[in-house]
Design a protein around this nucleic acid. Structure first.
Lengths: 203, 203, 203, 203
DNA sequence: TATGAATGAGAATTCATTCAT
DNA sequence: GATGAATGAATTCTCATTCAT
């Protein structure tokens, strides 16, 4: 039962609070209380709020970009690559709803405050998609397409799907609404995948 | 040139600030200064920050839901309905980037803080889509599908596309990046439209 | 059904609020709302908060001093004088609980803010008591005594009795407490009267 | 000379200001300045204004109820008990004029805002008197009487006597007024004591 | 007289950060 | 490393008062 290091404990709590309340909505006192450490300890370990935010986002974004990279690179076929790209990204989102929430907020502010180290991770994912689409086009499998649109289609849909799970669960219990509550990420990412690939295939 | 009423002027400024900085990041003093009214006037007209937020969002969301509703109801054919649904929504987003930013933030917090009056407007749009998809299915034009997925695909993609315009414009000026800067909403919404409709058509 | 003049309506409401919440605790917005007049009207009729307070207290204190004066002067016998002094004052207090509350607050602040016109009315009552005691002493009916002590004994007891009626009514419903809830001013003033007179009589 | 703890220093200053200006008339900025601490420190130690008030009143009322209790319980004879009850209460009032002022204001608002912990202390005093009077009645020393009336007679008179000291000292220097300025609490409480006891004795 | 709107000067409270131990 | 206490700079909100009509 290795004791989680204070520094890490702070990072975890902070990530969760930043996801729930955003940067401005996250209060250092609350953070200290939530993770059971003294407020001054936060400053001892993470310098200040901005640095803490940067540390949290880097720790959050890097493994996701890693996972997508690894999955995509393990496939040869561009269609397969695209499939695992979406599936892996969707899975990572669903497994870590903090990521969705934080990314959406950052997008909403135009990324103006996104720390550089976190931004780099997102660009790794975008360039990976870029390469997959280029490969598919070179192999005459995919139509030529704007990778940015596809990137946002993936991120936007997956993100919104994950981030909206709590909202959807709070809808009133009418027949009409109940069918809207499907929150199975597997089938959702499958449909997204199929939809996008269908629209990209050459014939 | 009729003088814009103070109450409206406040609402306009507030909407813009909420979009840029979020609820917590928006400072009442700044708002007062930006729209050139006394701080107390804001409270006179809009009670408090939370009410101001509610008023701003309601005024922002309602005309968009109205526009989509009107456009969709002016068409008979489900494919056409879906096309104008997406096009109108995308146009409204592009014309009013505040909407995208605010909606994304709200989604990021799981809609937990979204004022009821604003939420209703979003549900109007969702139910509209629901009806279109049902109609298409009844006419054997569309496959059966989960309207929520489609809804989020539309909103997520469009939203992210619009909200990320400033981000993309700030990317470094390399060849690789330049191609990412396409921010023409018309063609983007066309591609989204085609992609989605292609995936829904029965044969 | 003569319409109550706005100025008077304001004065009545103001008196009640000053009694309940004190000078600092009374808010002009609330006053305007409570008496159904526009806030600016208050200023039109009563200049400012301090003046309004002065007007309210003068209107409140004068008839009470008048009533006590009239009652005392209608009697010849010092014992009778003292009896009606206390009874009339107690009755006036009970009939107008605002008076008790306001007077107590003023005493609490050492009368520092009591408007001159109101203070004069209190002094009329004190000097009246002074004369009664002197008369009684001259007639060898009363012991020599400090009129101030007697004055405060009367005011303090009556005041506190009236002002504490709501407090006592809020005590929990136990046997022990129920006997404390006697709030009949007649018998209370009788007892006060007897107590004081008994202590003053020469033999 | 041990350094007085900040928390206590704040409490002392606050008590004095609440006594002088009432709850609404006391300004947190002034308090901070008066006791030479940072404004935020007040909130650190006492949460908010309402809690500070509660803390101040509890600290103020408790020792007085303690002193009266101890004095009364050290006597056997009901007459003696009543004497020391009044004398001790009067002494405590005179020694701590803040108490009088605050109690009067609270009575003036009908005790509506009196914090529960402070109210309990006042009830201790009342119940103590209750027991003394019952004992006296059982021993055929006292007439049957309403303890509440006696309680208010004591509190009202003593309170008003103490609270009005500054007022009386500000009266104009005429012969007639000078005799009103007796503010010796010892003799005043003696007279109150005698007056009340005289009225209670059976024969 | 009456009133909706406006406002300057507060006043309570919060919050990121630092300091002494 | 950890912590209770302290603090300056905000930040939200209030309130008496005035103004234009």
């Amino acid at each position: 039962m290795a004791k989680i290091k204070t520094s890490q404990k702070i990072l975890d709590c902070a990530t969760s609070l930043f996801a729930s309340y955003g940067y401005d909505g996250t209060i250092m006192d609350d953070l200290a209380e939530q993770c059971g450490v003294n407020k001054a300890s936060i400053y001892y370990h993470h310098k200040d709020k901005a640095t803490l935010y940067e540390n949290a986002l880097t720790a959050l974004f890097t493994p996701i970009a890693d996972a997508v990279t690894e999955a995509v690179e393990s496939e040869r076929d561009p269609v397969k690559k695209l499939e695992v790209h979406i599936k892996t990204f969707a899975k990572a989102n669903a497994d870590n709803p903090n990521f969705s929430a934080i990314l959406m907020r950052e997008m909403a502010s135009g990324g103006a405050n996104m720390p550089a180290r976190a931004r780099e991770q997102m660009q790794r994912i975008l360039f990976l998609l870029n390469k997959t689409l280029e490969l598919g086009a070179a192999q005459k499998v995919f139509k030529s397409s704007d990778p940015l649109i596809i990137h946002f289609m993936i991120i936007g849909t997956v993100n919104l799907f994950v981030a909206s799970i709590p909202l959807r669960n709070s809808l009133p219990e009418t027949d009409r609404c109940n069918q809207l509550k499907n929150s199975d990420i597997e089938s959702a990412s499958d449909q997204i995948s199929k939809t996008i690939i269908a629209s990209l295939l050459l014939n």
